[in-house]
Design a protein around this nucleic acid. Structure first.
Lengths: 197, 197
DNA sequence: GTCTATACACGGATAGAC
DNA sequence: GTCTATCCGTGTATAGAC
């Protein structure tokens, strides 16, 4: 008589894996560490997941699904620069609030890139992030009543890179002042490619 | 009678480690893989380096030192946008020519971030990259006869992020067209914050 | 179906022969 | 000083008891 179904077990293990990753890093997230964290016996692992790689794949998909487009701040009438700036800083607050989660995202991407079976997942992950970023930009345009003068896909990739790079850089040096200044500069750039209707 | 001095051995092992990292990734760069690659017996490892972490520290410093500011393209008189664009694309050619090296850089940074003894090295690594980027921007200004209208430190951090982010993104999806378009957009941005003297 | 016990390979590091 | 042989922990996975 099972105390928990296989599905619930998978859920349990995936969440435990995420906690371990955040605490100790992806490299140290071993199957043993995960089952200990989840409080399930080691043997349970392999009738829930075929392998560690399969568990990690689940974790990556899970994290990706959580990262959905957030609501655009309604700011009609406000100056575009101020609107962009506050939207960016509200994203940035999320990074500052949970640095470890963001670091894990980068680690997982690189893990996936090195696993022959998961390189495609890494690609989908970034296509997803780019789509989310694109949606954000569209929402910001709608909220401020402007249109972008630069091709939206180009703007989205460029913007994703800026945020990705700033995040990575900040995770390393934790320099709030520099990060904030660079973020403001990006907001200024966005304002410069926005056209008032 | 030593066939090689300890210093030469260290050199040999560090270079072998870099080759293995590029070929198999940092995670799979074990002491055994390194000594095999270098053609030295396993025992030799530990009287050259106290630990694997010490070897990796050496490797990180070595790679950092190689990454020095390259010469600015002399382009006096040319339109700033075209000059920035060609400088950026010549950097980009380096990324495209040696993707694995660049991936290793990111992996090493994350390795360092997770090693209590090496977090400070990661910080120095990024301070170094930012200084290099700053020097590039100064050289570009000198070569085109313009001045930047944005604080140089801010511009450097922002620019480092753009290039870092674009590189990471391209390493994942290898989309040359999108990368190139985003790079051009960054050149256009640089031109917009350049002031003709 | 669930979990215990264990197999087996590989990792870093070292002891001790030469 | 140089290298062989080995230790011991840890990793993934599985065999088999219940």
């Amino acid at each position: 008589m099972p105390r928990l179904s296989a599905d619930e077990r998978r859920e349990q293990l995936a969440e435990a894996a995420i906690r371990v990753m955040i605490r100790d890093g992806v490299a140290k997230t071993t199957t043993r560490a995960v089952v200990t964290e989840a409080g399930v016996p080691l043997g349970a692992f392999h009738y829930c997941f075929r392998s560690k790689e399969e568990l990690f794949q689940t974790v990556i998909e899970r994290i990706m699904e959580r990262n959905l487009p957030s609501e655009a701040v309604r700011t009609e009438g406000a100056a575009p620069y101020e609107a962009f700036r506050s939207t960016l800083h509200s994203y940035w607050d999320q990074v500052r609030a949970r640095p470890a989660e963001h670091l894990v995202t980068y680690e997982l991407t690189q893990y996936a890139l090195r696993q022959p079976g998961l390189t495609d997942l890494a690609r989908r992950q970034y296509r997803h992030y780019q789509a989310v970023n694109r949606a954000h930009l569209e929402a910001m345009a709608g909220a401020t009543g402007i249109t972008w003068t630069v091709d939206l896909d180009v703007l989205a990739r460029h913007g994703l890179s800026v945020l990705d790079g700033l995040t990575l850089n900040w995770l390393i040096d934790r320099d709030d002042a520099q990060a904030s200044a660079a973020l403001d500069e990006y907001a200024r750039y966005l304002a410069s490619v926005a056209h008032r209707d």
